[in-house]
């Protein structure tokens, strides 16, 4: 029971069925610890993104429960949950306007100092604020999106394969940022299908296969690269 309360997220027999009838998750039961970087890995179509989207209720279970720090997420105001559990998407999603405009979408009352802190935590220089967000490089745009999420001061961060579209240098920068955020006490859930990234980043590994937690044999095969 103590373990359940300590977990950040608890998934209990979670099934997610898409409107077309496809099973995205087929009875997932696992726990995500409340600290460090947890990497969710698995082959394409294993349900990694769906698992992540359940954490901030962009997706809801068809059956089963997702529990956040002891409370069923179905009972938490989604707007409160989402400010608490930030998310960075696979592709950078800059909004129209400058970087400042982007950060102010997250919290219009944010002060200049708060904007600078968010930029700094995302390893972006302060003079970036007046750059047009659409004109940033892929890595900068993704860090702008990270900074935007950090403006809401989330206690937890969901990273949905955020380096899939980035070059190796930008990828390493984002990995370092995730690590330093985790060291500062922000629990990070990171989805990847890159085994090398998993090895570099994971404090905890969750391997999914066919919509549920992979058994030990399957996880080992996947992690050895036999079916990556």
């Amino acid at each position: 029971m103590l373990a359940a309360v300590r977990a950040l997220f608890d998934f209990d027999d979670v099934v997610v069925t898409a409107p077309g009838g496809t099973r995205m998750l087929a009875g997932l039961s696992t726990a995500v610890p409340a600290e460090g970087v947890t990497v969710i890995a698995g082959p394409s179509g294993a349900g990694k993104s769906t698992m992540l989207r359940l954490c901030n209720r962009l997706e809801v279970p068809t059956s089963g429960t997702v529990v956040f720090r002891g409370d069923d997420v179905a009972g938490i105001d989604p707007l409160v949950l989402r400010r608490r559990v930030g998310m960075v998407f696979q592709r950078p999603t800059p909004f129209p306007g400058t970087v400042r405009d982007n950060l102010l979408v997250a919290r219009s009352a944010a002060t200049g100092a708060e904007l600078h802190t968010a930029l700094e935590r995302a390893a972006l220089p302060a003079d970036m604020l007046d750059r047009v967000a659409d004109e940033l490089s892929g890595g900068e745009a993704q860090r702008c999106c990270l900074a935007r999420t950090l403006v809401t001061q989330p206690a937890e961060l969901l990273m949905a394969a955020p380096t899939a579209a980035l070059d190796p240098t930008a990828t390493r920068t984002l990995e370092r940022l995730a690590r330093s955020l985790a060291d500062d006490g922000v629990a990070v859930l990171w989805v990847t299908h890159d085994l090398a990234q998993l090895a570099r980043l994971a404090d905890t590994r969750i391997v999914l296969a066919e919509g549920r937690l992979a058994d030990a044999h399957r996880a080992e095969r996947y992690l050895s690269g036999a079916e990556a």
Partner: peptide
């Protein structure tokens, strides 16, 4: 969709 969900994920109604 990505942009809309990014706004939702920031806690926007």
């Amino acid at each position: 969709r990505d942009e809309v969900e990014a706004r939702l994920a920031l806690g926007k109604p």
